[in-house]
């Protein structure tokens, strides 16, 4: 008895990516437009007034990692959550549940596809950014690794969300009411060091701070928190999501009832 059905996993992965291309306008064009608008508003309008930039980095360039992360978190979460929620909602999930497919194949298929979409999106956003600002990536390998890690973690997170949600409202409430505020407050457009106390300390409780600063470090070699802490926390988050999903599959929660 095999423990992993590679063909099944590949089938799910392919199907999910195909679904994304079916809605290419929404899943690719929209983020590009949003990112461009951010660059115009923050980079050009506000950045022009920021003398000397941030930590010696031009303001427009400074916000590139933050903007990238903003999109990655949002898109990974919503892509993965919709990916699994829709078949649950329509009932089409019967086929997956009746197939010789376990947690591993499901994760590789759904989460892998969502993460892949995020990576494609990251490439598009970084390319778009070059039209607005000059930026560098000092540690490209770390940057790629970090982007993959974040995409995978938040795709997993989105997958859990998609299993937990029993309405479209719940599906959008977490990204809107938790993820978005945390991201905006997490130093996407500014350095935590700019905040007065006690807000600086309070901000350190925001997990997104570590993500933004981790990515910023891979771009510019400096950030508000150490890269080790950032990586460690992201990995811990990933591990927690995997453990939770394994538990969900073992109990059949929200799937086999």
């Amino acid at each position: 008895m095999s423990l992993f059905n590679a063909r099944s996993a590949w089938t799910i992965y392919k199907q999910e990516l195909m679904r994304a291309f079916r809605t290419a306008m929404q899943s690719i064009l929209a983020p590009v437009l949003t990112t461009s608008l951010y660059f115009v508003v923050f980079g050009a309008a506000i950045g022009g007034r920021m003398q000397g930039g941030m930590d010696g980095v031009n303001y427009g360039a400074f916000i590139v990692p933050g903007l990238l992360l903003l999109t990655l978190l949002g898109e990974s979460t919503s892509n993965a959550s919709f990916g699994i929620y829709m078949p649950r909602f329509t009932g089409a999930i019967y086929e997956l549940l009746s197939a010789p497919v376990g947690v591993a194949e499901t994760l590789v298929g759904f989460v892998g596809a969502a993460a892949t979409k995020s990576l494609i999106l990251a490439a598009i956003i970084l390319t778009t950014a070059t039209f607005f600002v000059d930026y560098t990536i000092i540690h490209p390998v770390y940057a790629l690794g970090f982007i993959i890690l974040v995409s995978a973690s938040f795709s997993l997170f989105g997958f859990i969300l998609g299993i937990w949600a029993d309405s479209f409202e719940k599906l959008s409430v977490v990204p809107m009411l938790i993820l978005m505020p945390l991201t905006f407050l997490g130093g996407t457009f500014y350095s935590i060091q700019m905040l007065p106390e006690p807000w600086r300390t309070v901000a350190m409780a925001n997990p997104v701070v570590y993500l933004v600063n981790g990515l910023r470090w891979t771009f510019y070699g400096s950030s508000d928190v150490s890269i080790g802490v950032s990586l460690g926390l992201t990995l811990a988050f990933l591990a927690a999501c995997v453990a939770l999903i394994a538990y969900i599959f073992r109990t059949g929660w929200r799937l086999r009832n």
Partner: peptide
Amino acid sequence: ARIGLVPQELSTDMFEPVWRSVSHSRGLFG
């Protein structure tokens, strides 16, 4: 892998063309 199911409700990805949907099922079963 040796059992098949036709559900009571007409529930599947309605935006898929017939051929791809049926091929997908085969792949899903490995």
